[in-house]
């Protein structure tokens, strides 16, 4: 379990990193290394060149913006878990972090790495999809933003061009107040067999103003269906509605069999978790509303 030989670069600025990326065809960005290094050690990945971005302090920011937060690609899981701005503005991110791996992994792994790795059973891509994060992407030539729902293409495949990297994400803080995430993993710290996240905003009449539902582990990319979400607008939230939603989603998704779960098992997990996520989101939405009225 030793990686094949590679060239190693340690740029000090983003420009340098992007320059290297444009010069080398088979280069990989090394962020926290929690996914890349195991793959290299198992010789499943053979990059010729590694560009280690751990020295790029420009990618370590967590800043408040008009819509929410701007987070640098190199922000580590543990910071997402503990940073006061994250906890206040996008609390579901901090909460989801508890479900990701173990402390050792969270102390190294990064938000940029987690999104770029594009594991469909990872938590951050699910949240990115749920809340419509925008990924800020740069190459030596240009910068652009990619909406999360256009970023994930398939298992471990993203819309990044070979000379591009993620430099940060923009996450709106909207809809975090009434949100919940839940998953089923066999052991603590395992990748989940299925993940469900939901957020609900209520009308003054306590009917649903908007609802969002995203799932992980049930398809090649995080699953979301805005048309179906739209059909929930104006409805009264209730356990029976959640059961209907769970039933719908169980039939709408098309998971595959693998070593650890059959497609049918994943369907049942998705159904169960969606009900739980919606019930949890509603409870928080109501609480948020109460607080809002008191304020």
């Amino acid at each position: 379990m030793k990686p094949p030989a590679f060239q190693y670069y340690q740029p000090h600025t983003l420009d340098e990193a992007l320059q290297l990326l444009s010069e080398h065809g088979d280069a990989k960005i090394l962020a926290g290394g929690q996914s890349l290094i195991p793959m290299m050690n198992m010789r499943l990945a053979h990059p010729d060149v590694l560009i280690d971005i751990n020295g790029l302090t420009e990618l370590t920011h967590i800043k408040e913006t008009d819509q929410g937060l701007a987070i640098g690609a190199l922000v580590r899981h543990y910071q997402l878990e503990q940073h006061p701005l994250i906890q206040r503005k996008v609390p579901l991110v901090a909460e989801a972090e508890h479900l990701i791996g173990h402390p050792a992994i969270r102390s190294r792994g990064t938000i940029g790495g987690s999104l770029s790795h594009a594991d469909p059973a990872a938590e951050l891509p699910v949240l990115a999809t749920l809340f419509d994060w925008e990924l800020v992407v740069s190459s030596a030539a240009a910068e652009r933003t990619i909406p999360a729902r256009e970023f994930f293409l398939s298992y471990f495949i993203t819309a990044l061009a070979p000379d591009e990297m993620v430099t940060g994400v923009r996450t709106p803080s909207h809809a975090h107040a009434g949100a919940h995430i839940t998953e089923y993993a066999v052991r603590a710290g395992d990748f989940a067999l299925a993940i469900a996240a939901a957020s609900i905003v209520l009308n003054a009449s306590d009917t649903i103003q908007s609802a969002r539902i995203a799932l992980g582990g049930v398809a090649d990319i995080p699953w979301r269906d805005p048309d179906f979400e739209a059909s929930l607008q104006g409805q009264s939230p209730s356990p029976s509605l959640w059961r209907e939603v769970g039933q719908h989603i169980k039939e709408a998704i098309d998971p595959t069999d693998d070593l650890h779960a059959s497609a049918d098992y994943r369907r049942q997990l998705a159904q169960t978790l969606v009900e739980k996520a919606l019930a949890g989101a509603l409870e928080r939405a109501k609480l948020a509303e109460m607080k809002g009225r008191q304020a």
């Binding site: 066999v186 067999l193 779960a261 049918d264 098992y265 049942q268």
Partner: peptide, 16 residues
């Protein structure tokens, strides 16, 4: 009896 196997065994008894 992994979760996947237990799910299967419960399915054979009519499921959830």
């Amino acid at each position: 009896v992994t979760p996947g196997r237990l799910f299967q065994a419960l399915e054979e008894k009519g499921g959830f």
